[in-house]
Amino acid sequence: MTLRAHVVVRRGTLLVDVDLAVAPGEVLAVLGPNGAGKSTVLRVLAGLLVPDGGRVTIGDDLWDSPEQHVPAHERPLGMVFQDHLLFPHLSTTDNVAFGLRTRGVAKAQARRTADEWLQRVGLEGFGDRRPTQLSGGQAQRAALARALVGEPRLLLLDEPLSALDARTRLTVRAELRRHLAAFAGCTVLVSHDPVDAMALADRVVVVEDGRVVQEGTPAEVARTPRTDYVARLVGLSLLPGTATGTVVELDGGGRVATGEDATGPVFVAVRPGTVSLYLARPDGSPRNVWPATLVAATPHGSTVRCDLDGEVPLTADVTATAFAELGLLPGAPVWASVKASEVAVYPR
């Protein structure tokens, strides 16, 4: 019952061309910036959009090919939308029962099953309410129940948590994780939030400009980003270069000393927390010390995130206290330093 999809869609100037495979019980997160084409991929998988090319199969069933298109309502799938899209004119129970009714289940039976599912997602007793009478988190739980009640082979989640406030998001994310673990079918989750992807997915596919730029487990992607977008998402500074031993000549000029040996084209990843800032060139002889200019500084909890420009562009997190003591203003010259052992290096 593995989902295999090669999706080709031309949308204006953007050509989406993405390959995916999801095993039963697996959760695949499609991560990418807005406009990268990830929602387009999801709409094709749902059958809401006829692709311009490619092929979608699940198990032995062909859903999309140049010759064939199975419309959405004939695909055994469930979908959860960003802003739940519960039908406002139906009660919560009837919303959840909707998919059973369209597939021929008798009304009483459908409502009974729907109520069981409401209980499973923690909405017991809310069945008679209208969607407008539910909170955002309750509505999204109901939407999940509505998508899962028909025991679909494919579950599609389109930014399921992004409309929720931070606190609700945390609890709903945890519940979603539990329900996904119990779900036997394939799941594809689309998100632009790395935390959702990392917390919920077994595997992550990063899509940029309609192409897959990176694929792997959440941990792999977080540790070794391969594009600036992913690096920013996971909070790393990414520097491409060429390694010889423990020295990397960066493509943009400058050099970085690393703790590990490497050869050939590599990425260097620097965590902002490991970067130290000084007003004058630090004493002693640290191997990695570069002059830079402070471009922007944004408070970030108890730290201040400092974007640096120079031969080696970096991001540095310094404590608010340290930042105040340095007395830095945007445009100020600084020195940045990183220990070689804190620098990650991996092949390009």
């Binding site: 959405a72 309502h73 469930g78 039908f87 998919g99 369209t102 998508a147």
Partner: peptide
């Protein structure tokens, strides 16, 4: 909402009757 109905197995006529028209 009509997309949502389609993913729940409703063809266009059912969608029209049970979702679009009430909306």
């Amino acid at each position: 909402f009509e997309d949502a109905a389609a993913t729940l197995g409703a063809d266009r006529w059912t969608t029209f009757r049970r979702v679009t028209l009430p909306l």
